[in-house]
């Protein structure tokens, strides 16, 4: 995979991780499951997923878009 495609892929992933950390589709829902509102559980799960995604990033793509860019370009 080329550098550019990987950069776009990870950028999209970052935007999706941010965008869905708030469960917009549950707006107005007040259902409670296992003691907490379901939207809290979604958030907990999503941030755990985010942590895993960040970990994978550090293992496979660290430096992407940052090292070897800028300056004299």
């Amino acid at each position: 995979m080329s550098e550019r495609i990987r950069l776009i892929g990870w950028s999209v992933a970052a935007v999706v991780l941010a965008a869905l950390s708030v469960p917009w589709f549950l707006w107005g829902t007040d259902t409670v499951a296992v003691g907490l509102p379901v939207w809290v559980w979604w958030h907990v799960g999503w941030l755990c997923l985010t942590a895993v995604a960040f970990w994978v990033f550090t293992r496979t793509a660290w430096g992407l878009g940052v090292e070897g860019v800028g300056g004299d370009g």
Partner: peptide, 10 residues
Amino acid sequence: DASVYATGAD
């Protein structure tokens, strides 16, 4: 001097 922000892949 734009080159001061160049960060080589290492």
